[in-house]
Design a protein around this nucleic acid. Structure first.
Lengths: 194, 194
DNA sequence: AATAGATGTTAATCTAGATTAATACCATTT
DNA sequence: AAATGGTATTAATCTAGATTAACATCTATT
């Protein structure tokens, strides 16, 4: 099993001794999902925080009009979960579904609590991870308010250049909060600009 | 100086010994701001995380069209800062300004780093605080996409009943991402419904 | 009590983006 | 090669919310 991406990632934030690495590796679950499988389902309790080794997921919400709204795409070297459900162990608001075959490392709620007890430094790691995620989330709120759909699309392309090639346009439209038809219009406008 | 609200707040998440409390209190700054004063200014480096003892602040962003967009209101028993600027010690994207005379407790970046070293449990505290803030932020993104302006206004009133009475309507409109004129229309529509 | 400055309302008009619907373009599968 | 299902484009029409502007209230200050 390939743990290197996880350990490399962790070492960007904190240092772990070999012994600590062993403890950590003993409490994780390596798991593979196929394209279209669900990692978390709205209404279920989210049992794990998931670090992606390879693949791609979308985190989305189905509203009362049965409309799908994508909150995040996640790829290699990033996390995917319904954090709200995970930390409170209450039913999830979101779904997490694989857009490609996806290989990931799971931290279950109980294992993670044990890890915090055995390796207190991990509190620091996850504090820093969540801080960064929170900051990105706040910036997204601002962008949604202060930018037009076209501007948001351009920012998205620039910020996540790898994602656009990997997911269908109608999902990008959902992420941007617009219809697929309007995204198509934006793209044709942009092609005239050139 | 009144530290009780802070200690009560902390004890909802972790337990501190008396000795730890003393260390913590030795590294905080008690400070009062007047209405309209700035705690953080866009472009400056945010030097503190601030716990509000009394008063009210708005966190906002000025876009390139000089439009103000309010991200959050904060009141007693909650935090206010530009976390992105604070954690990376780079120029702030946001302004934090007092809407009332405000009394708060400041954790400077350096003092907080020292506190993490002396009381590692605080990593856990701040991990949990930021987790909750992140979850609230994600939910707000979803609401902005899936609800109409009228629905968002009703959710706002329900979620933050104390805030509406304390801040002018045009700021609530800014928080909701609509114009003050449109909020006024929504309110008159709602008054007919009754 | 009159003026000024900040806040709130109402109404007319305008526009970014939604909705609907028709059509086209793929990959697979049979 | 034709049929099926998922994806993308285009165009006509529609609507939630923005813009503009005139007017109303409510302080607070001189």
């Amino acid at each position: 099993m390939n743990h290197k991406p996880l350990l490399d990632y962790i070492h960007k934030y904190i240092n772990l001794t070999l012994e600590e690495q062993t403890i950590l590796l003993s409490k994780i679950i390596h798991r593979k999902y196929l394209k279209d499988q669900y990692i978390v389902q709205q209404g279920d309790i989210c049992k794990s925080a998931n670090f992606i080794i390879s693949g791609c997921t979308k985190t989305f919400y189905i509203d009362k009009e049965a409309q799908e709204h994508i909150v995040t795409f996640s790829i290699e070297d990033w996390w995917t979960s319904d954090l709200g459900s995970f930390i409170t162990q209450t039913p999830a608001d979101f779904n997490v579904q694989c857009l490609e075959n996806t290989e990931l490392i799971q931290f279950t709620f109980d294992n993670l609590e044990e890890l915090y007890a055995e390796i207190p430094k991990l509190e620091r790691l996850f504090r820093k991870i969540v801080e960064r995620a929170f900051v990105a989330s706040q910036k997204r709120i601002i962008k949604n308010f202060s930018l037009t759909a076209k501007e948001r699309y351009l920012v998205f392309k620039q910020t996540y250049p790898k994602i656009e090639q990997r997911v269908p346009q109608y999902m990008i439209a959902s992420y941007l909060g617009i219809t697929k038809e309007f995204l198509s219009k934006i793209k044709s406008q942009l092609s005239y600009d050139k």
